[in-house]
Design a protein around this nucleic acid. Structure first.
Lengths: 160, 160
DNA sequence: GCATTTGTAACTATAATAGTTACGAATGGA
DNA sequence: TCCATTCGTAACTATTATAGTTACAAATGC
């Protein structure tokens, strides 16, 4: 089965939008319109991304969020760690029988393997940057100067 | 966060017990005692493992389950595919806005990345076999001849 | 025939996730 | 200084996945 969380996918989507918008701050409601969800869900993700120093946000009129680094300096591994953290697989939910040799040792043995596996995931994700993702999103759409009006849906690429 | 499922950990535990028991069939209730859960939970996992041809099971008195291959021929990747299958990460749960360039393309772009990531997980897991796991479970306990009585808790290693 | 064990259905309990409403605090502009 | 706007977060609900449990038919060996 898939991970029960879509936070990673949404986070990549959010950051792609911020990259698209360049220096212009983007409101959580604009992002929510593109992701097709509630602005609070987006703000929760943005909070996690801000804690990881991937974005900065500002309250108030003319507020919003923008990238804290250039897209080429943000890897999917950074994003994964920021919003999913921890490890991929659970160990047992109830402690195995310590009277059984296997039960008494399986958690430690498996723990090591799972840590290595999580490492492999992070390394695999680290090979792709946000810039790569943005480049693969309709590469035909050319960068274009932003209008002054702040539309709720971003349809044109901003800056580069 | 961790994957919400402990099926993988339990499956490795189950198969370690079967490896430990050698040719002797193991009852789901014995396994359940070691894992500290209900026999039905174990039988569900064993079903998935049987579908993947990693174990064989038999009904009836003197029934139980045993490995279908030598432990060195079973990788953690096989086990992962058998009980977790599919992919690690979810995409969006609601379809993103198709009116936004990013929303219209993010799923396809991310889908490719996530497929590659799942590949990386399977490859990482494929580097460890069930034999490796069993060898790391209290390597001090020597293999030892099994008694005739079928105890509910396996405390000694059977065969090799 | 009978005791035993698997396979599976049906149900409940628990927990994670996301969606929603609400509101205080920050901020910039009038 | 006031006010509209936006974030951050708490509190709640709804949905879903997982695991735990009971129950029973079918298979199997003695």
């Amino acid at each position: 089965m898939a991970s029960s969380s879509s936070r990673f996918a949404v986070a990549v989507h959010v950051l792609s939008l911020l990259a698209w918008a360049g220096d212009e701050p983007v409101k959580s409601s604009s992002v929510a319109a593109s992701v097709n969800t509630n602005p609070v869900v987006i703000r929760r993700i943005l909070c996690a991304l801000a804690r990881a120093r991937l974005v900065t946000s500002q309250s108030g009129a003319a507020g919003g969020s923008r990238l804290a680094r250039r897209p080429a300096r943000i890897t999917l591994g950074d994003i994964y760690r920021a919003v999913e953290g921890g490890d991929i697989f659970m160990l047992h939910r109830r402690r195995p029988s310590q009277r059984c040799v296997v039960g008494a040792n399986i958690e430690e043995v498996l723990g090591g393997v799972l840590r290595e596996t999580n490492e492999a995931v992070e390394q695999a994700l680290a090979r792709t940057t946000l810039a790569d993702i943005v480049a693969r999103i309709q590469p035909c759409t050319p960068p274009q100067k932003r209008s002054n009006q702040r539309s709720n849906i971003i349809t044109r690429r901003q800056q580069s």
